[in-house]
Amino acid sequence: MTERERDDHSGIETTGHEWDGIKELDSPLPRWWLWVWYGTIIIAIVYWVLMPAWPGVTGFTRGVLGQSDRQELSSDLRALEAIRGAGAARLRSASLEQIEADPELQAYALQVGQSVFGDNCATCHGAGGGGGKGYPNLRDDIWLWGGGLADIQKTLVVGVRSGHPGARGETMMSAFGRDQLLTEAQISDLIEYVVALSRRPADRAAVARAAPTFQVQCVSCHGPTGTGDRVKGAPDLTDAEWLYGPDRDSIRNQIWNGRNGVMPSWEARFSPEMIKALAVYVHVNSGGEGAAPAATPALAATAPKPTGQ
Rank of each mutant, 00 (worst) to 15 (best):
S74R: 12
G129C: 01
G287Y: 02
A122K: 02
I251V: 12
A109K: 01
S115R: 12
M173N: 05
R4V: 13
G129Y: 04
A303S: 14
N253C: 01
V262F: 07
L73W: 10
Y38K: 05
L197S: 03
Q215F: 11
A79K: 13
P306C: 09
A82W: 12
D239G: 10
E3P: 08
I255W: 00
P201R: 14
F214N: 01
I187Y: 01
M274K: 09
T14E: 08
V195M: 02
G258M: 06
T183P: 06
M173D: 01
G130V: 04
F117R: 00
P165Q: 07
R269F: 10
A291S: 11
R230D: 14
W48Q: 05
V262S: 02
P297G: 07
G146Y: 06
R70M: 12
R269N: 05
A122F: 03
R200H: 15
L237G: 02
L237I: 04
A301S: 14
Y281M: 02
A150T: 15
I251S: 00
Y38H: 09
R6L: 15
R6I: 15
Y47F: 15
G226A: 10
P201G: 07
P297V: 11
G134N: 02
G146K: 06
G177C: 06
G56V: 06
R31W: 04
I22W: 06
L25T: 00
P212A: 09
E72K: 05
L25E: 04
D8A: 15
A208Q: 14
D247C: 03
G126M: 03
A88I: 08
A291Y: 04
